[in-house]
Write a protein that binds this DNA or RNA. Sequence first.
DNA 1: CCAGATATGTAGTGTTCACTACAGATGTGG
DNA 2: CCACATCTGTAGTGAACACTACATATCTGG
Lengths: 201, 201
Amino acid sequence: MGMGRPREFDAEMALDQAMEVFWRHGYEGATIAQLTEAMGINPPSLYACFGNKEGLLKAALDRYTKLRGIWIDEVVAAPTAREVAERMLMGIADKQTDPANPPGCLLVQGGIACGTGSENVPFELAARRAQNEDQLRERFVRAKAEGDLKESADPAALARYVSAVSVGMGVMASSGADREALRQVADVAVQAVEAQSADKA
Amino acid sequence: MGMGRPREFDAEMALDQAMEVFWRHGYEGATIAQLTEAMGINPPSLYACFGNKEGLLKAALDRYTKLRGIWIDEVVAAPTAREVAERMLMGIADKQTDPANPPGCLLVQGGIACGTGSENVPFELAARRAQNEDQLRERFVRAKAEGDLKESADPAALARYVSAVSVGMGVMASSGADREALRQVADVAVQAVEAQSADKA
DNA sequence: CCAGATATGTAGTGTTCACTACAGATGTGG
DNA sequence: CCACATCTGTAGTGAACACTACATATCTGG
């Protein structure tokens, strides 16, 4: 039995283009026509490869969070909780204002609220954000065990806090905040983590 | 010349219902059918009163920000920058998880990214968020002048920071975070403002 | 070179969307 | 009571949407 005609486009490169469209217009705001044009393919190819619009979004999110997860692994390799927060938030400030990408964060821009029929898109994004938060929380748990964070510190609350600031910065970036403005936010935000850190000996 | 047949519905009550629909589904996710049903009117009444869908959104935003502005006036009446931040963020935690309203904040849920033809909706929301940030910044300017904030403190950066945390909490609330989780975030966030406060004598 | 399998491009499908034409209802001023 | 103005409900309008039927093209295995 033959294996059929081979695909004529590169799925990952097409995903990168789709990602950008979702990033810029959100899930509902992105149309199949825009997506197929950006991906350089026709609708039947899209549906054969990704099932439907939501399947394409999930594939794009997988790609996005995979790259992001690798970066966060580097972030949490920082020696202290304070430096983890600083690397994280300063990195976010830079990434979210990188002219190579649309401003903000796909996990926010993708869709915070959706209409009937797309209700689980916001949940899908929230689940991916929660993954990042988990990575941070585990790192802060370790920091507390190492005596790097105060005994009174709550690693889960700290992780939620850093995650919330990241999201807020993303929204600001998408509405025009420049890199310097975001760095100032990050700079202030880090001080809350510093306040939870054990005093230097 | 006669004045014509009088309107049979209350515009403000109808706006409250429309606000809730936009809040829950976002601008693009909200349909005219949902809006008119919630408002208890038919499409021609909506268009006669508000012009079009975007006009209705703006009217709903006006109503939302008016109430919110009054609340922020109370918040910035707190005696110190630290207490302003605490009242603000704790109040946000409570408001965004108030079961009387959809979770989160209309100025975020309304639409962070939109499709072609609605590009200025995100700008409209961003402008309203900026108003709140301005109120905070002015308060922090005063706090610095009063010696309540350190000489090294940047009131604009602090206001942006509190605003960013508020937005981040709103996104978390809309994706299911409960009140206690948001209060923990607020609690950590306030400590950054405290770190910018002048030492107590 | 043929049969089976999968991809592609053209050209649609039905549905849903924001919005409105129109006729009738209900008010005001003369 | 009449001319006029504005609102209301019914019933649509054209456009845009996500998605697909179908014929054709390009591969593999025999």
